[in-house]
Simulated scan of single mutants.
Amino acid sequence: MVALRICKQTMWSDLPEHLMERILECLPVDCFFRFRAVCKTWNTLFSSHHFNSIARNSQPFLILCPAKTQLHPLIYSFFTHTWRTSSLSFIPHDYPINFRGSASGLLLADINANVCFGFNSPTLCVCNPLTQMYSTLPKMVSVSRIMAKAILPAGNKMDEYTVMVVGMSSAGTVVVEAYNSTTKAWKVAGSIPDVVIRNENVFFFRGSLFGVTASGGIMAYNIEQGITRVMAMPTADTNNLWGRLACCKSGVFVVGAIEDNHCLKGVIMWELVSQKTAKEDYKWEEIGKMPSFVCEEFRKSSNSNWFECVGVGDKICFRANESMEILVYDVRKRSWNWLPKFPADMRYVSMRCLPLEIMTGTKFS
């Protein structure tokens, strides 16, 4: 037994660093932090530039976040095809939480403003459910009433992120504020036309913040240039169409649901593509429809015609109201498939994308 233990120790110590990195990258994400505690060498590998480069190219995760801290989020790995549980008990409060977005393995959330923080002043929080760490953001400079919010990577470093908030200022104008994790401060990033955008449909893609307006259009705010563009929703040959915005690695998409007598009859997807014309820079291009037999099965998974969708990597995930099943459309492969059912009763949750990239290195002060 002693000889076998010595042999194992020698085998691991003699392995080249790049082979150890390839072995460690195959671990399930919830095992990362237990293995990095084994020794200083392994901990250094998890923080290396090479390992985090590999992680950025790995399959992302889908997280189902409950609104109550006593419930456990569910995380689905597209690499291992399994569901795992995490915990929100590290957040020191018992108030309901609204999760508003994710980036770089972090979740952006706000605490219910009606409970203890004033109706128009929710407390924003950024947390990492895998490292069990969180950071409460300071009060904003100008925004007095939040319309929408999103979190996005701020640079190439592992511990950098930016939180973008669109809201109404005390002067009655619509402004954009940005929180930088490096400076730990808010600043006004610009102003936008007087439009109202829906809080649940805000994404960041290639330098622009995208959101759905209350009138049904698509707003794109270029953060660096401070330019706002409002585009019309794509249309189909029906009047009974409502659309949602989805953003994934491949691009920006509109998912349109066709209804008839409050019954889901079909789903159409469009992608925002650039075009070189004098009049328009972008256009909506139809990329596919949900097959009728898939739509029928999807409709049977719930007693409601309402559904939510979210982009994860190269995939768009669909979940019918209170359903225990998730349907996935692979944008690159143009294919449909179902994820395994949840291992627990988690009907009343919101879907949020949780990428693997930079999870191992994100720090909080």
Rank of each mutant, 00 (worst) to 15 (best):
C39Q: 13
C39V: 10
C39K: 06
K40C: 15
T41D: 14
T41V: 12
T41G: 03
T41M: 10
W42I: 09
W42T: 05
T44H: 11
T44L: 14
T44W: 04
T44S: 15
T44I: 08
S47T: 09
S47I: 00
S48E: 01
S48K: 01
H49A: 12
H50F: 12
F51C: 04
F51H: 08
F51R: 09
N52T: 14
N52A: 09
S53I: 00
S53H: 09
I54N: 00
I54H: 01
I54M: 13
A55V: 06
A55C: 15
A55S: 07
A55W: 02
R56I: 05
R56P: 00
N57W: 07
S58K: 13
S58D: 03
S58T: 00
Q59F: 06
P60A: 09
P60G: 10
F61C: 14
F61Q: 13
F61S: 11
F61P: 01
L62N: 05
L62C: 01
I63W: 03
I63D: 00
I63E: 04
I63V: 13
L64K: 03
L64M: 14
L64Q: 07
C65H: 03
P66F: 08
P66W: 05
P66V: 01
P66D: 02
K68D: 00
K68Q: 03
T69C: 08
T69N: 03
Q70R: 14
Q70N: 11
Q70Y: 15
Q70F: 15
Q70A: 04
L71E: 06
H72I: 12
H72G: 01
H72V: 14
H72Q: 14
P73I: 01
P73E: 05
L74N: 06
I75N: 02
Y76N: 02
S77L: 08
F78E: 05
F78N: 10
F78P: 05
F78A: 06
F79I: 04
T80M: 01
H81A: 13
H81I: 10
H81M: 11
W83H: 10
W83Y: 07
W83N: 05
R84V: 12
R84H: 12
R84C: 15
T85Y: 10
T85D: 11
T85C: 13
T85P: 06
S86P: 08
S86L: 04
S86D: 03
S87Q: 12
S87N: 15
S87I: 03
L88N: 03
